[in-house]
Amino acid sequence: MATPTSTSSRWSELPDDILKSVFERLRFVDFHRAKIVCPNWYLCSKQTLPRKKTSPLLITFPKGGECALYNPEEAQVYKTKRDLSKTRFLANSGNWFLILDSKSNLYIIDLFSENTINLPPIESIKGDQYNLERVGDKVFKEVGIRNTPSVIHKAKNLRGLLWVDEKKEEYVVVWYFHMSQKHMIEYIAVCKNGEDHYREILTRLGLPVIYDMVLLPFGDSLYVSTTNGYVYKLDLSGKEGLEETISFLRPPYPSSDDKTVLSNNIAVTISGEVLLVQRIFYQSKGQNIFRLYKKDPYHKRMPLVKVDSLGDEAMLLDLGITVRADRTFGIEPNSIYFTRHDRACNRGWGTLHLDICVFNLATKKIKCFPWPSLSKLKLKDARWFLPS
């Protein structure tokens, strides 16, 4: 090979065939970091497939430290370059995470490239019945337009969901303030790319306390489960509003002398079927058991039927969706990946321990962590996600 000149030796001007060869050999996280070196590298990365797909990753939150990424397949921890220790992660879509900073500003960040999208202020919401006023950095006052009483909202009670399409450069952000059993949820806020404010949905409907929420891929539908046992499907693609109500009765409570903690979440499969996910935690044994149910349209008195298998799909309970599973890519089929059950409502288990587990529905066996690399981090929280 000829000796490169001073001009051609610059990293940004490496020949495409050499760049592609380099990209094809990089590990997944390194691939995403390398593509942001310069515009030419980014363009070349779009024409190159990563070395292989990856297993679900963990974003981890050590006590008193910055967040980090953990790849179980490599047993490798990747530290983020930016200091995110004073931020709160609300949701994610692929590599993109919805973040609330210490001054209650919302933005979206790609954890690999650290590219950032600033979002409209929370108080920019425009609705028929309510406006929000900022009171300091962590408090908002809900002001009723029609002489309704004012309500104070704290930033720590903000919950959110996110969907991002990198290729089309589109996103959907959803948030609401979690409230106590004494209040009804009057609205949920939504914002899409190109909009400079949030719009309210569910106005005048009044929902019971929200138990769980799932934003579907493509960001056009939102599923909301509530404490009254119903699941509401909301259309976000055009005219926002209630599209469908799916009635769910509570599944049978486990009969046991052991003290148990029970949660009922929802998840949506690749085919669009809504599942009720019952998680039973036996406190004395420190044991988790999962049961899945779906709605049976043919039986009104017994509307739930048990689901014994996810087939070749795996459930990421933190996201509320299922994905195609393949052991060669590190994704265990017919399994549930979970950390905590309380993403939407933040109800705790009454214990301080963190579960990072994979539950196999066929064997009923659970593989719990931390791995040796994680045990050193002294985690306060973690979240499974599937990089895009």
Rank of each mutant, 00 (worst) to 15 (best):
L58H: 07
P387A: 14
G272K: 04
Y223C: 05
I18F: 05
R199E: 12
P120K: 04
L90N: 04
K367C: 10
E73C: 12
S12R: 10
A68S: 08
D296L: 13
H153P: 02
V143E: 07
L262A: 00
S6D: 14
D83K: 08
L202N: 13
G206I: 01
Q283F: 08
P149Y: 12
P254T: 11
S256E: 09
I185T: 14
T322P: 03
W371K: 10
K285C: 02
N346Y: 08
I289Q: 10
S102I: 08
Y198I: 04
S255P: 00
K285L: 14
D355V: 14
F338C: 05
D128G: 13
E74Y: 12
V173R: 12
K53E: 13
T322C: 15
D83A: 06
L158P: 01
R10N: 09
L319A: 15
V209D: 11
E73K: 15
V305G: 02
F89H: 04
L374W: 06
E186V: 03
L49S: 14
V277G: 06
E142D: 01
V224F: 06
F28Q: 02
T48W: 07
N105S: 12
P72K: 09
D326K: 08
M1E: 06
Y176G: 06
I266S: 10
Q287I: 14
S6G: 11
I145P: 00
E169F: 11
V173H: 01
V323C: 09
R25M: 09
L276N: 03
E142S: 15
T203M: 12
F23H: 03
N92R: 02
F369P: 00
S55P: 01
K20I: 10
Y42T: 05
N95E: 03
R383Y: 15
K259N: 05
Y337G: 06
I18R: 02
L379Q: 04
V29E: 07
R383F: 15
V172P: 03
Y130S: 14
L84D: 07
S8P: 00
R291Q: 09
L236V: 08
V231M: 12
A267I: 01
I356A: 08
I246V: 12
T339E: 09
G127N: 03
P333Y: 13
S21Q: 11
R27N: 12
I125N: 10
L132W: 15
I109H: 01
R33S: 02
L14T: 02
S180T: 14
